[in-house]
């Protein structure tokens, strides 16, 4: 497809791609290695790129000295519930936006885009005050409600792209066969779109799992903290314990990386379809 490349060109290309791969992977390698060193060994010279002795002490300390299990549980609950509900709600709105023409449609899509453009920090203060009045500050349920709202705009746009990829004929055939529009959506359309829906859920889950500023603002007590809030507490203290920090970082990254690897193809498709078309 592209004209033949010279040997020199080939070497440059491979060298560059290989170098970028090393640069991309290295920080993750480094944090993992750091987390597996014996606590004192981190601060020893020469710096070891492959430690003589591996240890899980940093990980054990997270659960015995800090309440990392509690944070992990909170993050898991909040991200799972918010991700699921946001995906379900977005399926409905994305379906309507993909399949129907109506007057306020452009305005709704614009309203979704605006939420992605405006710095959300302008809303932090008032949101905190509103949640205080509702009695939802320092409350996992309150955080879930806010996360659902944060996920919906992008998730709707992403799912709308997936809906548009499925031909109308599929539903029409189902409706001719006696399905209602609702039945056609649930029995025919959604099963076809399953990979896209899973990708949308994973995208929401990872966003909630990683979210920092809202949870720092809304959650105060130690038993309600999510992982990012807890990590923020770790770095705010004067001396950072890099051993437990790196172990915590690895435990935070691994689940999301696994999920992303699983769904990366669809997430890429969801991200690019909108932009390339627009």
């Amino acid at each position: 497809m592209i004209n033949k490349e010279s040997i020199a060109g080939r070497i440059v290309r491979i060298a560059f791609l290989a170098m970028w791969l090393v640069i991309t992977v290295f920080p993750l390698y480094w944090i993992t290695i750091t987390s597996l060193k014996i606590p004192g060994a981190i601060f020893k010279f020469p710096i070891a790129y492959w430690p003589d002795e591996f240890s899980l002490q940093n990980y054990a300390g997270l659960f015995s000295k800090a309440q990392f299990g509690v944070y992990l549980g909170n993050s898991l609950i909040v991200a799972t519930v918010a991700g699921t509900v946001a995906t379900a709600i977005s399926i409905l709105s994305a379906y309507v936006l993909a399949r129907f023409e109506f007057r306020s449609k452009t305005a709704l899509l614009m309203a979704a885009l605006v939420t992605q453009m405006i710095p959300s920090f302008i809303a932090l203060g008032p949101l905190y005050m509103m949640m205080t009045q509702l009695g939802l500050v320092d409350n996992r349920f309150g955080l879930i409600l806010v996360y659902i709202a944060v996920c919906i705009p992008f998730c709707t746009v992403m799912l709308r792209g997936f809906f548009e990829n499925v031909p109308d004929a599929l539903e029409e055939a189902a409706m001719v066969d006696g399905c209602s529009r609702f039945g056609a959506l649930f029995r025919v359309l959604l099963p076809v779109m399953r990979p896209g829906i899973v990708a949308a859920f994973i995208f929401n889950f990872v966003n909630c799992w990683n979210e920092l500023f809202l949870s720092v603002t809304l959650m105060n007590s130690d038993t309600n903290k999510t992982i990012p809030t807890a990590l923020n507490g770790f770095i705010s203290s004067f001396n950072i314990d890099w051993g437990s920090m790196s172990a915590a970082a690895v435990l935070t990254i691994v689940p999301t990386m696994a999920l992303f690897a699983f769904a990366s193809r669809y997430i890429v498709q969801g991200l690019t379809s909108g932009a390339v078309k627009g």
Partner: peptide, 19 residues
């Protein structure tokens, strides 16, 4: 492989590079 920095939050990337 080159896609996976994306699974990490910006905040955590800040921490990785801080170290």
């Amino acid at each position: 492989l080159i896609f996976f920095p994306w699974a990490i939050s910006g905040f955590l990337i800040g921490i990785l590079f801080r170290w």
